[in-house]
Design a binder for these strands. Structure first.
Lengths: 353, 353
DNA sequence: CTTATTTTCGGGTACGTACACGAAATTTTC
DNA sequence: GAAAATTTCGTGTACGTACCCGAAAATAAG
């Protein structure tokens, strides 16, 4: 608890006290060679005494070396435009960071194709960026990637989902468990005693996206805590084309007790389309993310609730965390959970994705 | 959607194109006199064409005029040390903002005394700060204060509670309604069919802190939605000394059906003390805020849940919102809700206030 | 038309740090 | 011992903007 109220001192004052030039002080500050051990120690002593804090503004202005950030996230696709929002957040951050001399390299991969992840991650590392924003969709591949980042001491910020057991610089995204838990809570209002619930993981990756499973965990935890006895049918649809989805769902709906469908990602729009075609809009449908397609069905009463987690802000804040760390040299919150927003046809107009 | 990818241009480039000196360009940029209408228009035209964005870093470094922020929040008191956390957040922000040449004037008032608010707010305005962080504890007085701020065009950020019907620059704090709603949800797990619930507003101000009432609204909304029929006893204790609190509570506890106590602010510690003295720690107690006193009772099992809303971060983020607006000239989120954290004796050790 | 006044403008320095370059001091070499 | 090599250090400029001060141009006053 030493007093922080010392007047702002600069290199000039340090140089004056040490009877050297500011260039020498600067060399010590950056641990550059060309300073005798004796004067180096003297200067370090004075720096400590004065609790010198470099002026970041001046440093940024004068600094020649420009930082380079890189992002590695899925591309927005036909299947889902979800990833457009995070990309927008990145662009917003890029806009603001440009005047600090920071450039942003964008590497997008196909979230249904691990190979593209590997390829893009290799290309990214080849650029030797100073900081990375990563959506770790594939656990194994991401772990390998993190390994390499650690070797190059490049800080990594996760968004959208965490990487279990990996310590990046920070995670900015939903509390997936809570998110599933909350969905369960919502659904508990809608469900009647004898109803069954169909939980749908729609993703092409065989080893299901780990974050979907964490949502399921949260969901089941709530259900168990409440002691509910409704039948809970989990289903993984590995093909994401409309026909396959339609086929699987219509088969399941032969079970007349199913009255609630819970889709664990943004593919809820595809399910809504199917329900509409099957003329089963009487079913209750809950899913994720604020996509245009989904909003259409929300308006039409096919989708009942959407749960959103500010994807754009996730990416924006993730980029800013890199800036805080690498430019301002500030400590960064290691976990930043986004709010869990509930969207209905009553409030979607006011929602800010 | 014009492309933003233009190279970064500075005043120098503008001056070159306009065949004038950078000083003249600067005068136009700051709307200072001494430029003929003709050249002024020419320069403005070029500025627009180039989509010139001033370099904030250089601007901050060169700027002579230092910004002054001011805060107007309750002082930490004997009654509750709650307000220590927001003050810490302010200090943290001050530390970071100092190198941008920003100073922070602190005005603290007694949250039990409207007069001190008036006095301090007058003193504050006399300083003519460039931005204000306000905890609007007293509705009427705060409205008056906001009026004056508007006249001087000083942006104001609210923390802790919003000011209904007033439009400040931003609000950073809890969603009070949701907070009460969540409390109700928590309590619904604890309560048994025949139990009564005692809701306690402990505050000296006659017109109860409006934010307590909003918590009550949220609470009652949940209760109603669920169709619960438990007796819900609301009580306002206007004296905050231990004896009065003890007297009121022990009187109420004559009612044997009361099994759950919900305290709508940090005075839950005082209630816990009473329950301990009365040897009624069997009662369930839920309250607000992560204060040392309360944690003691949480550990001792007298308090069952605490609900916290990151008071330190509220203030920190509020200050940074002023910085974003006034220095970076960036748009600011008008509402920033804090997470609603649930603290128990199992997880309090890991909580970051 | 000359002088005084006002308007318009440019040169130059400052902000605090980074770093190139060359000068001075020291050490090494023969 | 001097010359060469090396180490150590200071001077000066740059980053992009703000703003002082004085010069030049335009206008007004006599």
């Amino acid at each position: 608890m030493k007093k922080e109220s010392e007047e702002l001192v600069g290199v000039k004052e340090i140089a004056r006290r040490a009877n050297v030039s500011i260039a020498t002080v600067d060399r010590v500050l950056h641990d550059r060679p060309g300073v005798s051990l004796k004067t180096k120690e003297k200067i370090q002593q004075i720096i400590k005494e004065l609790n010198y804090q470099p002026n970041i503004v001046a440093r940024t202005l004068a600094s020649r070396k420009k930082l380079k950030f890189a992002i590695l996230i899925p591309a927005s696709s036909e299947e889902t435009s979800y990833w457009k929002a995070p990309l927008d957040g990145v662009l917003q951050a890029e806009q603001e960071l440009r005047q600090y001399g920071i450039s942003v390299e964008k590497y997008l991969f196909d979230q249904n194709n691990r190979k593209t992840f590997l390829k893009q991650s290799a290309a990214l590392l080849h650029q030797k960026p100073d900081g990375i924003l990563l959506a770790p969709m594939f656990v194994e591949e991401s772990n390998l990637f993190m390994q390499q980042c650690r070797e190059h001491s490049i800080p990594v910020v996760f968004i959208n989902s965490d990487l279990p057991g990996q310590s990046g610089l920070a995670y900015v995204g939903p509390d997936l468990y809570q998110s599933g838990y909350l969905s369960a809570h919502l659904i508990s209002y809608l469900v009647r005693p004898a109803d069954s619930i169909l939980m749908l993981h729609i993703t092409r990756e065989l080893e299901m996206d780990h974050h979907l499973l964490r949502k399921e965990d949260g969901f089941r935890a709530y259900w168990q805590e409440q002691g509910y006895t409704h039948e809970l049918i989990t289903m993984h649809i590995g093909q994401t084309d409309p026909e396959t989805i339609r086929k699987h769902i219509s088969r399941q709906l032969k079970n007349p007790s199913i009255r609630v469908l819970f889709v664990t990602n943004s593919r809820v729009a595809a399910v809504a389309k199917v329900l509409e075609e099957l003329d089963r809009t009487d079913l209750l449908l809950i899913g994720y993310d604020f996509l245009e397609d989904s909003i259409v069905y929300l308006k039409k009463n096919v989708i009942d609730f959407l749960i959103c987690q500010k994807p754009q802000e996730q990416a924006y804040l993730g980029m800013m965390a890199l800036y805080d760390k690498l430019v301002l040299n500030q400590p960064v919150k290691s976990v930043h959970f986004m709010p869990i927003d509930i969207i209905t046809r009553e409030n979607y107009l006011f929602y800010n994705n």
